[in-house]
């Protein structure tokens, strides 16, 4: 039972030349076959790194392995110079890595404020929690405005923002977001992306998975294409965005009507 206070947070300045997160050769699955078949990529300090790829590629599985929900069968995950493999979800939280999962994850029967406070569940000092809550309320006004409402009664976009707010309660170094824009209308989507940008400007490194690949890659400094459990391409956000094959396949290029067919061809390799 490592407490947040007791854990040694990853030191981002330990070695400036090394990426904040290094994933290498990770093999993982859910008991059946391996979903991830040797995934290797890195997330530079201070970046917004975006993982794109078709449904079922294993994107969420990568994030589950990072956050301790799923234990990789092989490979290494090094975050701020510290290995995460074998650590519990709670211990990983203590190193400064937090995950906002793909499906809505607020505690529906708890109020908005209780939910955000749960973000600091591992902090025992209630004065610290209160101070953090106040800072978060400044950043996310909805947390104060809807404080006493049941989280389940908020709209999808509002829930996302509260989830973001909750994830920042431990002042994480790396915020991992799984399809934050899922199911949002264009206006809310822009708001969510703006929040992602703001979190990054505040000094946090962001790793996100997005189906809204074009918009997300524009926002991102780095891009990763994952397909069938392996990394097919990495580069800057721009490089991935402008890669001819990728553009055609995921970004709704000129041949979007043949998309299904071409994707099949690619998967079979």
């Amino acid at each position: 039972m490592t407490d947040y206070e007791a854990a040694t947070p990853a030191d981002p300045h330990a070695d400036a030349s090394r990426p904040l997160l290094e994933v290498s050769g990770v093999i993982a699955g859910y008991g059946g076959g391996d979903v991830l078949q040797g995934v290797t990529f890195s997330v530079p300090q201070g970046s917004i790194t975006c993982i794109v790829g078709p449904n079922g590629a294993g994107k969420s599985t990568v994030l589950a392995a990072l956050s301790g929900l799923l234990r990789p069968r092989a490979g290494s995950i090094v975050f701020g110079g510290r290995s995460l493999v074998g650590l519990s979800a709670r211990q990983i939280l203590g190193t400064g890595l937090v995950l906002v999962p793909q499906n809505h994850s607020l505690f529906r029967e708890m109020t908005v404020r209780e939910n955000v406070e749960m973000g600091a569940f591992t902090v025992r000092d209630s004065a610290v929690v209160r101070a953090r809550l106040e800072a978060i309320e400044e950043q996310f006004p909805i947390v104060r405005e809807r404080a006493k409402e049941k989280a389940g009664s908020l709209s999808g976009g509002q829930q996302r923002l509260v989830e973001f707010a909750r994830s920042l309660m431990l002042d994480p170094t790396l915020v991992v977001l799984d399809e934050p824009s899922m199911g949002l209308d264009p206006k809310t989507l822009r708001q969510v992306f703006a929040t992602v940008k703001a979190m990054n400007s505040a000094g946090r490194t962001i790793l996100l998975v997005e189906q809204n690949a074009r918009a997300a890659l524009k926002l991102s400094t780095h891009g990763i294409v994952l397909e069938s459990g392996v990394v097919r391409l990495t580069g800057t956000g721009r490089e991935v965005l402008e890669h001819p094959e990728i553009e055609e396949l995921y970004l709704g290029g000129a041949v979007s009507d043949r998309l299904g067919l071409r994707r099949d061809g690619l998967m079979r390799r």
Binding site: M1, Y4, S67, G68, L69, S88, A89, R90, L93, G94, V98, L99, P101, S105, L106, F107, R108, E109, M110, M118, G119, F121, T122, R166
Partner: peptide, 16 residues
Amino acid sequence: RASLQDRSAARLVGVN
């Protein structure tokens, strides 16, 4: 209560 409402979310905020 957190575990009751969403087990994996509870895990992600550090509930054992």
